[in-house]
Amino acid sequence: MTTMAEQTAAQPVRGAEIRRHELAAFLRSRRERITPEQVGLPRGTRRRTPGLRREEVAQLSAVGVTWYTWLEQARNIQVSVQVLDALARTLLLDASERAHLFQLAGATDPTPAASCPSVTGALREMLRRLEPMPACIQNSRYDILAYNRPYGRLFGDLDAIPPEDRNCILLVYTNEEWQSALVHLEETQRMMAARLRAALAGHLGEPAWKMLLKRLKSASPAFRAHWQRYEVVGPRTKTKEYVNPYVGFLKLEHTDLWLSPELGARVVMYTAKDEQSQERLEKLYEMARTGSPA
């Protein structure tokens, strides 16, 4: 006969086991609904498994086949946030499904897809009142945590980008629309990589930083080359030149307003450097406000 203490101690163990089985079932269900064509794989003529095979998910997520099989078998293994992020991308999870995946795994999603409690209602109101100036809130990792309507159109259509991909340095190195908007692309990329390396010193070993660096190195040869230069640059105000896809050339002053004594979260805002840029910012704001086409 078990004692009350033994029953209490067993409850967390049973809860963890239930979560593992729910995670396994969730992964299987999402794997089986994706066609090979959706992820760029040939269907072949001898496919019996609905959706993707386990080995295909493992290959696309850069994890071992045996390890992924154990995960779908609800084995008691540790899952890092980097692996969860890779699985979410491979299985084409939407924001709700991604949040569910991390919850089942007992992990915290470190990307901008997760809600950020430090972005208060007052800060969102401040962003709104800065319009027509484009402004956003970023952390030291370049995650875009919140933004106003002009900023959402500054480099294209930010609303169309999945929340987990809303990271400035990732977009500057991998998104063609953002790259086309930068007049001095390579200089901007090098500067951002140097600023990221400077900020990394205070976050060594943190899962979210490791995940971002792994993704950047995997996705961009240019980032790998710039990262190997070991350049370090601190934050500074600078004039920026953009070719906006809706209103044309913009010459803007970039300013960081720090939200704490540490160099972490900050408001990033852009003010016009000349009358023409001011007129075009106002036009951009009006387009974003009314939802009118370019």
Score class of each variant (00 low, 15 high):
A24F: 10
V247E: 01
P293E: 10
Q278K: 14
L252T: 08
I18G: 00
T66A: 10
S218C: 09
P162I: 04
A201R: 14
K251E: 14
L212T: 00
E72I: 06
Q278I: 05
G205D: 02
H254V: 00
R197F: 07
E6Y: 08
V81A: 01
R236G: 13
T188A: 15
L60D: 05
W209Y: 15
V183K: 10
R280D: 03
E177Y: 03
E72C: 06
Y246P: 00
Q11L: 15
A201I: 11
T35N: 12
E176L: 13
L185N: 03
S180I: 03
F249G: 00
G248K: 11
G64P: 08
N244Y: 05
D159A: 14
V65H: 06
I34W: 08
L281P: 05
L284G: 03
R128E: 14
R128M: 07
L23H: 05
N139I: 04
E37I: 12
R149L: 07
R236A: 15
C168F: 15
L171R: 06
E286Q: 09
V65G: 01
Q7C: 04
K240D: 08
A9Q: 14
Q7Y: 09
G248W: 09
D143S: 11
Y147T: 04
A10H: 13
A58K: 02
L154P: 02
E17D: 14
A160D: 02
S118W: 09
T290Q: 10
